[in-house]
Every structure is written in structure tokens, then in C-alpha cells.
Design a protein around this nucleic acid. Sequence first.
DNA 1: GACCTGCTGCGGCGTG
Length: 743
Amino acid sequence: MLASAFERLALPVRRWIWQQKWASLRDVQEKAIPIVLDGGDVVISARTAAGKTEAAFLPLLSRLVESEQTADGFAVLYVSPLKALINDQHRRLESLCEACDVLLHKWHGDVNESAKARARRRPSGIVLITPESLEALLVRRGGEVPRLFGRLDTVVIDELHAFIGTERGMQLQSLLTRIEAATGRQRIDRIGLSATLGDMQLAAEALRPGDGQEVSIVEGADEGNGLKLQIRGYEVSASVAAVKPPEDDKAPGESPEPFEASDVPEALANDLFRILRGRSNLLFAGSRAKVETYTDRLSAMCRQERLPNEFFAHHGNLAKAVREEVEIRLRDDPRPTTAVATMTLELGIDIGEVATVAQIGPGFSVASLRQRLGRSGRRADKPAILRIFAVETAAGPSSHPIDRLHLDLVQSIAMVECLRENWCEPPTVAGLHLSTLIHQILALILQTGGVRPLVAWELLCNRGPFRSVEKMVFVDLLRCMASPANQLVEQSPQGMLMLGAKGEKIAESYEFYAVFMSEVEYRIVDETRTLGTYPIAAPVAPNETLIFAGRRWRIVSVDDEARVITVQPTRAGKPPYFAGDGGDIHDHIVAKMREVLAGDEGYFYLDETAAQLLAAARGAFRDLGLHERSLLPSGDNVLIFPWVGTKQLKTLLLALLARKMKGSAAWHAIEILEASADSVLRKLEDIAANEDPDAMRLADHLAMPQLAKFDHVLSSELMNLVTIRERLDVPVLPSIAAKVLIS
DNA sequence: GACCTGCTGCGGCGTG
């Protein structure tokens, strides 16, 4: 097997491998080479750093070398969700391509216009591109598409999981369909590269919608070296005193700026410092505000100990240069460095070896936990180490039932159990994605100069990815786009769809190419450079203080016209404000939480406090009778514990609100206000008996912020349709209510 | 109770 995979590669490719002095091909490469050489669609899945890129490109380059190369079209199109990843891959593939005499082009927003023009004049070889740059190319140079892509051999999609079920994923699928249509090709081979996914069949279907069974699947063996786990518990009193910054950090005469009580408990700060200091680590803090608070606290501890700082913030609102300093220090600098980060350090980018991955709280998904874990233990002899720090409020018999159940800790345990059972969330592929479809209709008109409505529907919805959009919905959508208020499109006397006045305007701007929404933000600058961006919704005024990029600042001026906030270093600071909108926790995790609470199994990875907190939570679970019922009177209110995921919980809540109850979601429960258990029971019986719930009635009770870029174009009927299909889970409503009634 | 991603064409000016 080993010999045969290698021997099937073209001579220049084999010669390049000899030059690299590789002892052998990696497992995933052995498996992928013969399959990719034979052609067809392939998903290649393996853990980070297992050699997926070469698994695809060694055989692809072999095919290229052995075919007749010309300069009349690109041969391979590689699409990546990140510019940084394109730069990494370019570095990685450069010498291999050179050895094979194949041109390799980078193509994204930071690449020179002249380099792109050169590639366009004599198109050949491999292009590494983002979906947005590909969109721009199709929209601005629609006429050149047949010449550029007419001889395309293969499309490679990197980080396939990042595209599944998302707006950008729909756009990418649509782009590929548009290329296939414009070049008159039935089918151009697709190769998806991905970290290990929960469900490979879903990945195959995402790669080739409607024909997933025809996709070959290559899974790399798990070459991991074991996993070391710990969950550490922390109990803080409900009325914990505000944690103040150290005295010596305040300038004389400066007014004190106490931190919020929710900031960093003393015992947790001490443990984090003790565990992380002196080595290189990742600390996933959970939100941008927490990244700033924890970085600030831990660097203040360095100062107190008279040590050089080793804690640095890393999140999406920090300027690229600020983030790169942290990445380079992690990768190349021998000094110990802990990056305190959000999910910015979860994906692809090379940051070298870290000793520990630590996380505050359970996070939102097992998939992300798995991805984070992949960041440690990459060296052959070291296991991956993951520590979760769970902070719980002290609770007694008189406390609120939800506090007594210590749900943060219980969720952490449930998620670790899922991880150990090798389960992770399957990507969600449902959804109408009408906002993205509006974008693609505009893009198709720009690319072709005009299109008939039926042709557009055939291409985008029947052949392309918007499969759940029926003709009638498509017609409604076109009406919204053409309405006098929107004027995105109009129809010519011959029946062609053309851009309307406002459509023209939108398409002129470079902001058109991305399908996702982006907020308006201020730039934060100190005397020398831009530190990052700050939401316009956050209230700021001169002389207020702010923690940003892990340091403390005083706001000098706010220029609303230029949207610039100028800051100066100072010695006190308040955590920043970022709006967030909460994530969906999967059903499987919440069901597992109930198992953890109802069971008596011990978990070897809990520290003493965590074990005590779990024992207390299990005691409360039985005391409250939750092992035999799901309804709990609590003062004037009633708590419902359906033990389902966020989406289903929200749907059940809406069904109750639609039946004139008052209440809200409270953690993993629903709290109904001023009602008796009996009255709630009757409503639940009604919901359980109603096999065909009136979905539109539910949507009426839901606050519907415009979440996607073109949601404002949709009529309220279409907006409701989107909400019901994408944000709620209406069909299961009767069965959830029935389940609550039985238990 | 959240997070992340991306961007063209052209006019105007300075430099080699």
C-alpha cells in the first residue's frame, strides 16, 4: 500500500518528496492519493496538522504534470475562508509547485492588483482565493469566466466544516454552480478538506448538494497521543465584593474604578496564574469582554510579582497587527506566552506548540471544544491537556432552584462526556437563506448582464444550493426585491431581470461581495497606531477609561464624523462592552446534562471543589423532585425543565406565550410568571394535543431583529418563513410538551 | 449567554 500510493505519483512530485526527506507518507495521504488520482468528488477529513493539504495537492499536481498544460485557463481553484490561511498554504505549496513547473497564484484583498491582472492575462496553474474575491471576479469580469475557468480540473475547499450550513457556504456553492453553468461544464471535481466532522455523510452532501452518495470519503486515522482532562470548580458567594485593581496601579488623584463583581474571582485568578505562568498556553475566555478582563488581571499579577508580562489578548476586534504580534510571539519567541483568546485562535493558523489549553466555562459546542483541544499535544510524545474552569454561585436550600443546580459545571461535564464518547454536533444544513439568495440574484444579474426569472430559479434553486426555495417563494422574493421601497431589481419589457436604481448603487460598493452582515464600528487609536475597532452601540465619552488589547486606557476624544476614538495609557480601566446574542446549545448536550444530574457516576477529571459542587447539584435535583417531574412551582412562578436544546426551548416558550402566558427562558429552563402549576399543565396539554401547530402564530411573539444582510428587503411573511425554518423547531413541539407532561 | 470571516476600481499624488 505504502509503495503503491507513492509510486503512482508523477516523477517531479516523487522527487520533491525525496528532497523533503520525509520518512514516509502520513496515513491520510496514503489513503487519499489513489482516490484523488482517479478523479471524482472527495472529502478528506483528518485532525489538524495531519497533512491534509498535501494529501490533496500531491495527487492533483501529479495529474497536472501528466496532462497537457496550457495558459488558457486555471487548472485548480482552491477556496479558503481566511486570507491568513491562503498565505500559509501559499508558503507550503510554493516549492512543490515550482518543482512541478506549475504556477501558483494568491488571490485575495491584500494581493496586488497587478499580480491579479497578470494571472488573468495568462491563466494557468493553481489559484488560492477567498469566496469574496471569487465573487468579485465573477461579478466584475463575468465575460471572462469561460476563458478563465473553462478548463478547470478541480475545486479544493479548505476548512469545509466552516462553510457547511452557513451564509458563506451557500454563497460558495452558488459560485461553483455559476462557474459550472457559465463554462458549460456538467461537473467539475470537488475536494473538501476538513477537521474531523461528526457526520461524514452530511459533509459529502454539503460538498455536492443533491448527490452526496457519489462523494468518496477519506478519513485519516486518529494519531492523537491521549487526552488529559480536568474540570476545576470555583464557588463564589452571590454578594462577592467588587475585585479592585491593585492599589499601586492607580495614579495619585485618579478616581477609583472598581471592577464589576462578575470579573475574576480571587481563587481563580491565583490558580490561572500559577498554572499558566512560565509556559506557552491558550486560554479561551468565552467573550471579547472576558478576554480583556482576564488579560488585564493576569498581566497585573505579572507586574505585582515584578515579572515581564506574558499574557496577551487576541480577538476579532483587535487590529491585525496587534493580533499578529501575539501569534508571532507564540510561534517563534522562546519567552513564555499565554494568548487569552476567543475563537480567533481555534482555526487553521499556525501558532506552534502550547503546553495547556484552558477554558473559562463550558462554551457553546463540543465541536469547538474538540477544535481547541487539537491545539495542544501536537508533538509526538505529548498528550493534549484541557482544563475547564467552572465558576458557580454558592447556593443553599433557600436559593433559586436554577442556582442550586450549578448548570455551568453540569454542562461542562456533559460536554466533556460527549467529547469522550466521540460525539460532536452535526452541522445544520436546514434553512432558506433568503438573504443570501437575494445577494446571489443580484450577483447573477451583474455577472450575466441580465437573466430571465425562470433561468435564475433553475440555476440557483434547482441546480444550485437554494434547494428548499420553491418557485412560489422565489416569485414572492422577486416581488420584494422589485418593490418601490427596495428597487433592487426591475424587469425589462422582454422579461429580463435587470438591476433597479438601488440595486445599481449597492453593487457599486466594494461592500457588496461579502454575504454576511458587518456592523459599523469606531477605530480605537493611541498616539502611534490603530489598536482595533469598537462597536458604535457601546456608549463612550472622553475621560472614561477602558481596557483594550489587554491594557488600560483613558479616552481622550471621540470623533463621531471620522468614527475614531483616541486613547492614552492610564492606570485604571473598565472592561469593554460588546453586544452578543447567545448561541444555540444542542439537544444532545442538554439531554446529557439531565443524565449527569440524575446519575451517581463519579468523574475522574473533577477536582475536589467541582466534585462537591456536583454532589450539591445532584442533591438539589432530588430535593426538588426533578428526577420524577419537569414542572416546579417556585414562589408565584412555575419553572419548566424540558431538558432540550436552545432552539426547542425557545419554540416551547413561544407556544406558551402564544397561549397568553408570561415568562422567559432562564438558563436551560423556562420560567412562567404568576401562574399555577395546574394552569401551565393545561396549556402544555393543549400544545401536546395540537398536531399541526400554527407556526405563524408563534413567530408573532418573537422579537425578530434583522440578522442577515438583506433581511430588510423581505416582507413580514417571508421573514416569518425564514424565522420558522431557521430559528425554531416547530414540528417537534407536540412531542416536547408531551414529554414534559409524562415526566 | 457568543464568536468569526471579507472587499474593486479609480482618481490623485509622489517617486524613480
